[in-house]
Structures are given as C-alpha cells and as structure tokens.
Design a protein around this nucleic acid. Structure first.
Length: 277
DNA sequence: ACGACCTCCTGACAGC
DNA sequence: TGCTGTCAGGAGGTCG
C-alpha cells in the first residue's frame, strides 16, 4: 500500500503514459471509487470525455491529474489503489474499477482498487492545487517544504511523535511503514511526547523520513505483496529495517524487534535502541 | 482548535 | 471444506 515513494513512482509512470492524451471514453465499473463526485458514475464519465490530460502532480500521498482546461482529476490510492496501462480490449484484472480510453487508441489507463479506500474525483479549477487537498501539508520533497515550520507545528502537538508524523497536515507523505523506519533511524520510541522532543531531534527525524523515502523511491518503492505496483505491474524492491520484522534481530543491536498495536495498526520498534524514556 | 475514536471496503490467512 | 476472527501501508467525519 502506497506512501509517498510509491505514489511518486505511479505519478512518473502516468506522466509518461497519459500527458497530452485526449480521453475518448470513461467506464466506471463500481460507484464507490467516484463517491466524491456529486453527479455519480455517469456524471463523472460524461464530465471527462473529450478532455485532455496535462502532466500529473503530487502532494504527499495525493495525486492529481490536471486537465489542459484548468480542472483536474484528484486521485488517492488509499490502501490498495493502482493505476495500470492495458491495451484496449484487454480483459480487466480483478478489482478493476475505472477505465480511461483515449482518442489515439493507445493503451488504456485503468484504476484498480481492491479495498476502495481510495478513489477519483473531478476537482474544478484544481490543476494547480485541488481545493480538496489545500489542508494537506507540503511533503519533504516539495521545493517549498518549510522544515522549520513543520518542526514547530509537530512540537506544538500534545500527542505521541508517531501520531504527529502520520498527521498529513503537519508533513505529508509519511505513512505507517516509513514512520516506523524513520523512528528506528532516529532511535525514538513511537509514543514519545512530541512537545518534549527538542527541535533538533524533530528536525533530525524529518531528515530520516526524507532519506528513507528517497531511498525507497530510488528502489522503485517498497512492497510486501501485490497491493502496490507501478503502472507496469512491477513491485518495488526496497528492503526495510524494522517494519514487518517482528521477532527478528534489530540490525543495530540484535535485540528482537517488537510489534505493538497502535492507532488500529502496528508499530514496530527495537525495545533497546528506541526506549520510551 | 485539537485529539481520540470510528468507519468506509475486500481479501488473504490462521485456527478451529 | 468451511466457518470465524484477525489483519492490512489511509484519511475523513464526529464527538468531547
């Protein structure tokens, strides 16, 4: 499931595959992925037919596909969303939800999503930045990302540091996997109070988050299973230091990695390198 | 305004 | 085999 590096891999794949192409037909096969579109599946399809895509953009885990007229299609992959490129007429893979066909009769773009936490919507006037994601903070790869401001806002939160890291309004793009990886690199326990950490410590943590995601991007992303793949169906090759390594030795000190339930998900950490206090 | 909690879905897998 | 429970990398809405 996709966090910033995986979404960026998808964005690059779409940039090469759909920029400048005119939509000739849209088939919405399941209503849920377009639930945010007020006119329903047929309205969504009708609104896009005949329009032309410009170059896809991204903020954090959100992707948007600008149209040449200034609107955009906003997309989120949720936990299991994928975009695929398929020849016209090729059979749908399981969980195919939306198909875009193009006037040039080239490969179709298909949105596939098992769990349908993600989806697509039309964002009027959203080519520069869809209004729906104006509240999402800039991510560490954004040229205008303000590190000091992010550090300040994180330290103002009266909550655990991992909760703050996962709050997409403070800094975007970091999900459960890369949060655990960044905390391990920074030797911080996930539930350390954010306001008790020094600015230098939080700055260092965000640096690790940037670095671990940059490494993942260079490897084409991280994948455990088939739920995250690029537009050609390939999964990433990034290997992780803590996430998913419960019971296996910490790569620094050899202590078995612990997994705890946290925020209805899992936190993985080394009980020796990452002490709560 | 902020933080905690709940929920939207499908599917894989373990255990009985 | 087939049931049930658990788990999965996200984020918006609601409530206190």
């Amino acid at each position: 499931m996709p966090e910033l590096p995986e979404v960026e891999v998808v964005r690059r794949g779409l940039a090469a595959a759909l920029t400048g192409r005119r939509i000739s037909r849209v088939d919405v096969l399941h209503p849920r992925p377009v639930r945010r579109h007020p006119d329903g599946p047929e309205g969504f399809a009708a609104a896009l037919t005949g329009r032309t895509f410009a170059e896809p953009r991204r903020r954090g885990k959100y992707l948007w596909l600008p149209l040449t007229d200034g609107d955009a299609v906003l997309a989120h992959l949720g936990m299991s969303g994928q975009f695929r490129l398929d020849p016209p007429g090729a059979p749908d893979v399981r969980n195919t939800r939306i198909r875009f066909a193009f006037a040039d009769a080239g490969r179709e773009v298909r949105f596939v999503d098992q769990r349908m936490f993600g989806g697509l919507s039309l964002a009027p006037g959203g080519a520069e930045l869809p209004a729906e994601i104006a509240h999402i903070g800039r991510d560490p790869f954004d040229p205008e990302f303000d590190l000091d401001e992010s550090v300040r806002r994180i330290r103002r939160r009266r909550t655990g540091i991992k909760r703050a890291l996962l709050d997409q309004t403070l800094v975007s793009g970091i999900g459960n996997i890369y949060a655990d990886e960044a905390l391990w690199r920074a030797r911080l326990h996930y539930d350390r109070p954010a306001e008790r950490l020094s600015a230098a410590r939080v700055r260092e943590l965000l640096g690790h988050a940037h670095d671990v995601m940059a490494g993942a991007l260079a490897q084409g992303g991280t994948s455990f299973d088939e739920l995250y793949v690029d537009v050609n169906g390939s999964s990433g090759r990034m290997t992780l230091d803590v996430y998913g390594r419960e019971g296996r030795p910490c790569k620094r000190c050899g202590t078995p990695i612990v997994r705890e339930r946290f925020m209805n998900r899992s936190s993985h950490f080394c009980p020796v390198c990452q002490r709560k206090r």
